[in-house]
Design a protein around this nucleic acid. Structure first.
Length: 574
DNA sequence: GCCGTTTTCGGCCCGACTGTTTTCAGTCG
C-alpha cells in the first residue's frame, strides 16, 4: 500500500485535531498543521525521499520528532503517538470540529456531558434540545448546528474557482454601486487563484456613513446573515457560498487587502518580519508603537519590512519571502502574454463551433495562432476523427489559412494514448500535423507503474508534442490517475516536448506544484483552453492563474512565444 | 513541536464577532 504525501498529511492533521480537543499547547498543534501543509505542498513523494536516504528534517517545520513520526507513518500507516491519542479521545470527535461554531472546547464539553461522539449523536442531541440546555451553549448555536448538519447532506464544501468567480464578480459589482463606497475587491484564496475556494472574502473601503454593510446583508442572493457588525459581516448565499465583507478606511486599504488575501502561512511570516523590525502589522496598517507608518497600499506594507510587493498567487509561504529578499521574484506570466492557444476543438468532434467561428473568436482575442486539436477515433462518443476525416480537416485548414483570416490555424489533434502507450493514429498521419497533443481518456485505474510506463512510451513516439491534462483529475469529481509525474516531467525534458496546463475550470491540470517543478526542470508548459466552444477561451485566465501559482514566467510558457519562435520548438518534436 | 547572526530556552500573529458572559470565552479567519 503506497503512502502518499496527502495520506501522511491527513494523519498529522488528525493528530492536530485530537490534540486540540485535548487542549494541548497551541504551538505544538500548529507544528503538526505546518508539517501537514509542508508535505501537501511537496512536489516529491516522502516515500521516495526516504528511499534515497534523504533527511526529512531538511524540510521546513519538520524536526527530529516529526521526521520520526512521518517515518512511522510511511512504514506502518500510523504512529504510536496517534494510536495513543485515538485511545484517549474518541477519534470520531474530529468530525465535529468541522461544524462551524464548534471548536475543541465545545466538542469536549459535548462529549463529556452528553456523550456525543458522532455527527449522528450531535444531530439527535440538537433536535431534542439538549445542546441549548448546556451552559456556554444557546438556542442560536443549536439552530446553527442543526441547519449545518441538514445542509451538509447535499452541499459541497468548496467551490471551484470559476464557479466562485461568477458569484464574486456579481457581488463586487453590486457593492461598488453603494453610496460612499470606494474600492471593492475580492481577496482571500480567490485572489490567490486557488483552484477551489472555501469562502469568499470581500474587502471594501467606505466612508463611515456608508450603508454598504446593510446593502451587503440585504443582497437578494443572501440566504442567511451569520454575523452583522459595523465593520464585518458574514452571509451565506443561496448557493451556500459563505461570504465575508470587511470594511476599512481608505488609509488602511493596502494593509487590509494584504491581510485578507492571505494565505495565513504567508501572513504569519510577514508579521514575524515586521516584529523583527519593531513593527506591528494588522489589517489597519503597519505600526511603530502607536504610529502608523504604512498601510494605504500593499506595496507600502511590504516595503515596511524591506520587501518588494509579492504577487498574491505566490503568497503561500513556499519560498516567496526568500525570493523577494534576494530580488528574484518571478515576473509572472499574464493573460496578455499568451500569443495563441494550442488546444481547441470544433464541431468536427465534440465542439460546438466550426473552424471559421473558432478562428474568428481567437483572432478577436488578439491571438496570432490557434491549434485545432479535435479528438481521435478512439473517443467514439465524441465522434473522434479517423485518418480520413483528419486529413479532410487538414485540407479545410489549408483553405482557411489561404484566405488570410488574420490568424494562423495550426494543424493538430488531441490523440488518445492507448492502454499500451501507442497513439490512436499512425505516425504517417501524425507526421503531417504541426503538433500532436496526446491525452489519456481511458484506463484510469492502471497501477502507478503501468500508467507511468504507458505515458512514457507515448512520449517516445516520434511526433508527440504536448501531454494534455497530465494528471487526468477533475476537481472534486475524479481523483488524478496514479502516475509518477516527476518522472514524466524529466522525460519531457529529455524528449524536448511539453506539458499542458489545461485551463478548463474542472481540470486546471497541471496543478501548481508541478508547474513549478516543470519550470525547475526547464520544461515549457502550454496554457491551453481546451475550448469546446467560442466561449471557452474565457477560461484561459484560470489556466494563467494556475501557472502563476506555479511561479511561471512568460519564458516558461510555450504559447507566450510568437509563431516564428513557436514553430522551431514544435518541429523539434516532429 | 519547531527554531535560532538577539540560538538550546522561550518564544511562537492578531483582531472581530457572537452568545450568554454580567466582564468574557470561544470560535473564526
Amino acid at each position: 500500500m503506497p503512502v502518499h504525501n496527502a495520506d501522511i498529511a491527513a494523519k498529522l492533521d488528525e493528530i492536530a485535531d485530537l490534540l486540540e480537543i485535548e487542549d494541548a499547547n497551541p504551538f505544538r498543534i500548529r507544528a503538526y498543521r505546518n508539517a501537514a501543509r509542508t508535505l501537501r505542498d511537496l512536489s516529491r513523494e516522502v516515500t521516495s525521499l526516504l528511499a534515497q536516504g534523504e533527511d526529512l528534517t531538511e524540510l521546513p517545520g519538520i524536526g527530529k520528532d516529526l521526521a520520526g513520526k512521518i517515518e512511522d507513518i510511511v512504514k506502518t500507516g500510523t504512529t504510536p503517538m496517534l494510536d495513543e491519542h485515538r485511545r484517549a479521545v474518541p477519534p470520531t470527535l474530529v468530525e465535529l470540529l468541522k461544524i462551524p461554531g464548534l471548536g475543541p472546547k465545545r466538542v469536549k464539553t459535548l462529549s463529556r456531558t452528553l456523550g456525543i461522539r458522532t455527527l449522528k449523536d450531535l444531530h439527535h442531541a440538537a433536535r431534542t434540545g439538549r445542546i441549548s440546555a448546556l451552559t456556554g451553549f444557546g438556542e442560536k448555536l443549536e439552530r446553527q448546528i442543526l441547519h449545518e448538519l441538514e445542509a451538509r447532506a447535499g452541499a459541497e464544501g468548496r467551490f471551484k474557482l470559476a464557479t466562485a468567480a461568477q458569484y464574486a464578480e456579481a457581488l463586487v459589482a453590486y457593492l461598488k454601486a453603494s453610496p460612499g463606497v470606494g474600492r471593492v475587491v475580492a481577496a482571500g484564496s480567490y485572489r490567490r487563484a486557488r483552484e477551489t475556494i472555501g469562502d469568499l472574502d470581500i474587502l471594501a473601503t467606505a466612508r463611515a456613513d456608508s450603508p454598504v454593510m446593510d446593502r451587503f446583508v440585504s443582497y437578494d442572493e443572501v440566504e442567511a446573515v451569520l454575523a452583522h457588525g459595523g465593520t464585518k459581516a458574514t452571509v451565506r448565499l443561496a448557493c451556500k457560498l459563505q461570504v465575508d465583507l470587511r470594511v476599512v478606511g481608505e488609509e488602511s486599504y493596502g494593509a487590509a487587502l494584504q491581510y485578507f488575501t492571505g494565505s495565513k502561512a504567508h501572513n504569519i511570516v510577514l508579521r514575524q518580519l515586521a516584529q523583527q523590525r519593531g513593527l506591528k502589522v494588522n489589517e489597519y496598517g503597519v505600526f511603530k508603537e502607536e504610529r502608523r507608518v504604512a498601510g494605504q497600499t500593499e506595496e507600502s506594507v511590504y516595503a515596511a519590512v524591506g520587501l518588494p510587493w509579492i504577487p498574491p498567487e505566490l503568497r503561500e509561504n513556499r519560498g516567496e519571502f526568500d525570493a523577494a529578499r534576494e530580488g528574484r521574484l518571478p515576473q509572472l506570466v499574464q493573460l496578455g502574454d499568451l500569443r495563441g492557444d494550442l488546444h481547441a476543438h470544433t464541431n468536427a468532434t465534440d465542439g460546438r463551433n466550426n473552424l471559421t467561428e473558432m478562428a474568428r473568436t481567437a483572432r478577436a482575442r488578439g491571438f496570432e495562432y490557434l491549434a485545432i486539436c479535435d479528438h481521435s477515433q478512439r473517443l467514439a462518443m465524441t465522434h473522434g476523427l479517423d485518418a480520413k476525416r483528419l486529413l479532410a480537416q487538414l485540407d479545410e485548414i489549408d483553405r482557411l489559412n489561404e484566405t488570410k483570416p488574420g490568424i494562423t490555424l495550426l494543424k493538430g489533434i488531441e490523440v488518445d494514448i492507448l492502454e499500451d502507450g501507442r497513439l490512436d493514429l499512425p505516425d504517417g498521419v501524425l507526421g503531417r500535423l504541426d503538433l500532436v497533443v496526446a491525452a489519456v481518456h481511458s484506463h484510469f485505474n492502471l497501477s502507478r507503474e503501468r500508467q507511468t510506463e504507458r505515458i512514457l512510451r507515448a512520449m517516445d513516439r516520434p511526433h508527440f508534442t504536448i501531454l494534455a491534462h497530465p494528471s487526468g483529475r477533475l476537481i472534486q469529481e475524479r481523483e488524478p490517475y496514479d502516475v509518477d509525474l516527476p518522472r514524466l516531467i524529466r522525460q519531457a525534458r529529455e524528449r524536448q516536448c511539453f506539458l499542458e496546463v489545461n485551463a478548463h475550470p474542472e481540470r486546471l491540470d497541471l496543478a501548481d506544484a508541478y508547474c513549478r517543478m516543470a519550470k525547475e526542470e526547464g520544461v515549457l508548459v502550454s496554457i491551453n483552453s481546451d475550448a469546446h466552444s467560442v466561449l471557452d477561451f474565457e477560461n484561459l485566465r484560470f489556466g494563467v492563474g494556475q501557472a502563476r501559482r506555479g511561479w511561471l514566467e512568460p519564458t516558461d510558457v510555450l504559447n507566450s512565444r510568437p509563431l516564428s519562435a513557436l514553430r522551431p520548438l514544435l518541429q523539434r518534436t516532429m
